[in-house]
Design a protein around this nucleic acid. Sequence first.
DNA 1: ATATGATTGAAACGATTGTATGAATGATAC
DNA 2: GTATCATTCATACAATCGTTTCAATCATAT
Lengths: 212, 212
Amino acid sequence: MNDTKLRILDAAERLFAQQGFDVSIRAITDEAGVNLAAVNYHFQSKEALLDAIIARRIEPVNKRRLEMLDAIEARTGDRPLPLEAVLEAFLAPVLEAPFEHFKPLIGRMYSVPEEFIKRVFHVHLAPIVVRFDAAFARALPDLPESERIWRLYFSIGAMVHVMNWSRVLRPISNGVLDPSDTRALMRRMVAFAAAGFRAPVVENQPVHRGTN
Amino acid sequence: MNDTKLRILDAAERLFAQQGFDVSIRAITDEAGVNLAAVNYHFQSKEALLDAIIARRIEPVNKRRLEMLDAIEARTGDRPLPLEAVLEAFLAPVLEAPFEHFKPLIGRMYSVPEEFIKRVFHVHLAPIVVRFDAAFARALPDLPESERIWRLYFSIGAMVHVMNWSRVLRPISNGVLDPSDTRALMRRMVAFAAAGFRAPVVENQPVHRGTN
DNA sequence: ATATGATTGAAACGATTGTATGAATGATAC
DNA sequence: GTATCATTCATACAATCGTTTCAATCATAT
């Protein structure tokens, strides 16, 4: 790939992750050390640049997620899929992605349902969600569909929230939370989500209010 | 309160919830049917207006959360706090808030850790989190502190994510998810988070990869 | 009725935004 | 070496931004 084009991608990714998606093109080209017009030359517009940045990082992560899921299904045969393994296939490639600014970048992306993000969702996210929902159905055949999808979204929410606050979790928790240990974080999240997925389905009655 | 000031608050809240925080002051004053200069007259700046909008909605919700927690503690005495009830006190006032644009508004707010949102966090959110963390500690006395705080953040993430995507959850789930039934949603989330809180603490070893 | 202070109004400010233009420079093929 | 195409450059454009100014209008108290 062209050198300036790469420099723009890297600089824009860095600034988007640090300051949000409303960084000016001038700030990007300054950071990249290239001319102002280079963005509209190599990409058509600022929005297309953003698409390219997201795609560059999401694609390999999604590829890894599907690879891990394929491996699980291959070695499981016709038996129910192991829930923790499916969760790991869904979470680990994201939480442990080797891209420096991936967490805040994706965290911001997930949380701003503007027009452009709906497009990103349909292109990059929806196929993954559909594929994994089928896997969760195979892991929990007795769980009703709506309950299963709700719990998948709860799990995604936990993941996104940690990505979003990864830079501030340590200070605001007085150092108790350490998001840099991605392996331990992944195990914690898998344990939490797996238990949530296996929770008894709530009936149409008030929640328990008595003793523990 | 002054009429124009109220109209600005309502219009800005509506537009912020619908379009995000980068709505122009002109769009707000047009929507409110007031003069452009009214925003900088009644509030000092656009940022102060945003503070006022957030505070107006968060304060009564937090008040309700603490009331419910107080009631739980009062009727529990020295015994361990009932986990589901504490979760309900934390989640219900948010999920069932009677403000029309509350969900997308708070959803956006939680997910944009800009400078202003750090201030909002310290003013409105941190005291609540500290208070409820103590309650969760009383509900789960054997759960290590770091694990407890992680799981609280996972639960907050599930809540925020649903708030953030409340307007699109139904279409992208083909109508399976219905966020408008806040009572049922609250029960589902309590069941999910409670099970997550009670999950066995993960050891320092790879997650289970074998059969289910 | 008149004075006083609060509020509203129209207009303009300087700064910044994304994008477009056309000349200058670069590299590559013949 | 020269022609051809891709790339870079400085500059300008029109639009929009948050904020300020100051006169006009309103409400209220005396």
